[in-house]
Design a protein around this nucleic acid. Structure first.
Lengths: 391, 391
DNA sequence: CTGAAAGCGCTAACAA
DNA sequence: TTGTTAGCGCTTTCAG
């Protein structure tokens, strides 16, 4: 590690020119076997590892793709106390048993509880899981296409710096929705291909890969209407500025409109509550329903799983039977929905595919820059579980 | 994107030298404000993004750290059928309700069931979660230290190529245990600092960061012995070639030895079964116990969570009461252990910290290459849940 | 099959 | 404060 050897060192050691060293590494067949062996020997002997930077410069190609994710919730996490962190002298025994005051859905509830901070930090945030899967999909596909993957997570004002930085080191970039302002994206996309993930809104000439929120919600809502014969629905909405919320809401409305036009069913009543995509938001929505004094709906269709879990929390505590009294559905397919009581019916997004298709999209544009902007929509699937079962 | 602009283009456009352009970007304070503004204007106008490769070459520093993980299980995944994948015309409704034949621990069991393949692919592999957390920790810390992070996952024979490739593009590298042969590591570490994660075995001069498997298992076993007064134990071991298994087994043995020497308790009986770190392995171990005809132990201490969950599966089906009849413990702190019945007592590894400390370690060696090899051991914590509760 | 030489785009002295 | 210039290590014609 004293001084990293270069092609020159290897060339000298092997008694050849630097061009030959380069050939041995890039196009081994163009070199006589003996020479090749000798050069390879020198490579080992010297511990030579080619410089990616030099290679990238000379070859005008990095061989790297970038993935830009939203910042984690770790953003405000304090610098750990490194000293004490590595003090293994005493192992804490933590009583992690469930108390009696727990909500129906198990200790997931603790995440929202400020009093449980010391344990809550351990449990993974559903949003992170989402990104993890996208990341893993992207990594797999990148590798398959012969690219390395560089990841960055944007946080606050440093976004711009990081994005620019990463943009200069990769051949193409995938960016998750709403992590980067449009003008920055436009700037970067003048240099390398950029694909936007999970944002189906029009307005730019970039490639987009998203998930079919609308069709998924439409299918699920139709199922509730037709198979369960529901006529009184509550839609628990997400934040009004979310593209996902907009798409899902549209799917919901379409299903309701179709059902009404259908003539087969009775008129459908619809109420809307705000759920903010969060568990507490879902709880508030459900509580509002309960205290309103109005008759309970046949089904509560939530814009995402988190808020649906919040609804389940409240219903469980209030003794409202799900699904026999009220059906509840979510959207996303997060892990926690598999463990709730009852288990949550939902629409599952193909998160890994998002990452894979994104990479594929970037690579294809790299190959063929002339292509018109692509907008891919990935299909979803409805998972019928006990909160709104198959019939 | 026609032709990426360079410093020269920007310099010409702004009427300055390339050095000034470089300064504006790197050390803005060394440039007169007016000039700076003008140059920045040109940067925007031209859509200039500095080349990371050129920068890295000239500056002999990439500003990138690498993380090398074991290949995912997606390794053999076939190329998806992209055409049909993007066909959103019909949304499948999948009946994902639990059947009656399920095992005690919920649908986790399906992962092992070949008949459930169509849904099983959705659920995350605990090993992946582990890597995800390490990755996230590394990313956070890298960013904090001013580095980008490049991820790669090694698979089969391509490991060598990938590793070399990534090594040439980063300033330092963190490698997960047993993903790379020692000689390759040695080769690469002649060029850049390398830190090995989760492998405490001696035998090289590299930096290591691991978790305190031994102390964790010792603490947990002592708890079982002392607080629960167990005198008859079964240890469900992992694969014999695993460094983790070795460390944990040692911790177990130490606790038993201490308990015996203590004199306070009665003599402790110990049996060992093989659990292979897997759920099915754990099941086999528990079944062996059941059919042996011997008296059930007071506690089954498993080398990891997966095998412990397998043990719980079998005990639940056989009607063996946990914890009243037998205590069961695991190791790792995977998510599924929070949802088992009963919930699993375990030792939680600080996975995120592993990644963070790894980065920190690499950076400190970058700063001070003369340091002697560091071996950091991170503390763990024991989570007492219902399968072996606090008293 | 191998060598010589011209850059790739940028940073960092050193001058001015 | 700004400009000039010499590389950084490698790939890639083009000769030989």
């Amino acid at each position: 590690m004293t001084k990293a050897p270069t092609v020159y060192d290897v060339a000298a050691h092997a008694g050849v020119s630097i061009a030959t060293v380069s050939r041995v590494l890039r196009r081994p067949d163009d070199v006589r076997p003996e020479t090749r062996t000798r050069v390879l020997g020198s490579v080992r002997a010297l511990g030579y590892v080619p410089s990616g930077a030099a290679r990238g410069l000379a070859g005008r190609r990095h061989g790297v793709l970038g993935l830009f994710l939203p910042g984690h919730d770790a953003i405000d996490e304090p610098e750990p106390d490194w000293a004490s962190l590595t003090d293994s002298s005493r192992i804490p025994l933590i009583d992690d048993r469930l108390g009696d005051d727990r909500l129906g859905a198990g200790e997931e509830a603790r995440i929202d509880s400020p009093s449980a901070l010391t344990t809550a930090r351990h449990w993974s945030n559903p949003a992170n899981l989402y990104f993890d899967e996208v990341l893993r999909g992207a990594e797999v596909e990148s590798w398959r296409r012969g690219f390395a993957l560089m990841v960055a997570a944007g946080r606050g004002s440093s976004r711009e710096v990081i994005l620019n930085d990463i943009a200069g080191r990769v051949d193409g970039l995938a960016v998750l929705a709403q992590t980067v302002p449009a003008d920055l994206l436009a700037h970067v996309s003048r240099r390398i291909p950029v694909v936007v993930l999970a944002d189906s809104r029009p307005g730019d000439e970039l490639d987009h890969v998203s998930v079919d929120n609308t069709a998924g919600m439409r299918a699920l809502t139709s199922f509730v209407l037709e198979e369960h014969g529901a006529t009184d629905l509550v839609y628990v909405a997400g934040p009004s500025d979310s593209p996902d919320e907009a798409d899902r809401h549209r799917g919901f409305d379409e299903a309701v409109a179709t059902g009404a036009a259908d003539g087969s069913g009775a008129a459908v009543r619809v109420r809307v509550e705000r759920g903010e995509f969060s568990r507490v938001g879902g709880r508030r929505a459900a509580e509002a329903l309960l205290v309103s004094g109005e008759r309970l709906p046949d089904a509560v269709v939530c814009a995402n799983d988190q808020s649906a879990l919040g609804v389940l929390d409240v219903f469980a505590r209030a003794g409202v039977d799900v699904p026999d009294r009220v059906l509840v559905t979510g959207f996303d397919g997060i892990e926690a929905g598999r463990f709730s009581a009852p288990r949550l019916t939902t629409v599952r997004q193909p998160m890994g595919e998002l990452g894979r298709v994104a990479v594929r999209s970037v690579v294809s544009r790299l190959t063929d820059p002339g292509l018109p902007p692509q907008r891919v929509t990935l299909p979803v699937e409805v998972l019928l579980r006990e909160s709104c079962p198959a019939r």
